[in-house]
């Protein structure tokens, strides 16, 4: 009968905490931090910077719809994975510093703590994966995913 909400038992999430090394004092100037979003990509690496937006619009990436809190020490997040099962090859914190196409990755999920080696996460229907935590170090940004 037309549109319907999803049954809660079939929803899948990843959640965790983003911590900013050096606390709120470490943030860049406000005019270069227009948005902070958590993004989880199915494909990795990407071909170039413009492909980030393409991955988003093509449905190959999941992202928080609103900006996450900015200029804070840490922030919790929860992200619904709308069409599980999904293999998330690259989970990152992204900063928009300009127009709609101007994004940079500032933190990457890595089980080892090595931000050059992103970890993969498998999300199945009904999964709620916690502790997908990411540390952001504005003084030592990870390599971009392309």
């Amino acid at each position: 009968m037309g549109l319907a909400p999803k049954e809660p038992s079939k929803k899948s999430y990843i959640s965790g905490q983003i911590s900013y090394k050096g606390g709120r004092a470490s943030w860049p100037l406000p005019d270069s931090v227009l948005e902070i979003r958590l993004v989880a990509f199915k494909n990795y690496p990407l071909s170039d910077s413009s492909s980030i937006l393409k991955e988003l619009t093509d449905g190959n990436a999941y992202f928080t719809i609103d900006t996450l809190p900015r200029f804070v020490d840490k922030a919790d997040y929860s992200l619904e994975i709308i069409d599980p099962p999904a293999l998330l090859k690259y989970i990152a914190v992204a900063q928009r510093y300009g127009n709609l196409f101007q994004w940079r990755v500032i933190g990457v999920y890595s089980e080892t703590g090595d931000n050059t080696k992103p970890s993969t996460v498998m999300v199945n229907p009904g999964d709620s994966l916690t502790n997908i935590n990411i540390e952001v170090d504005f003084l030592n940004l990870p390599p971009q995913p392309f």
Binding site: G2, L3, L56, T57, I65
Partner: peptide, 17 residues
């Protein structure tokens, strides 16, 4: 498609009866 960045479930649409 760029509405996706602002509107959750922007693509939720069905035929109307």
């Amino acid at each position: 498609e760029l509405l996706k960045l602002q509107v959750r479930d922007y693509d939720a649409r069905v035929p109307m009866h």
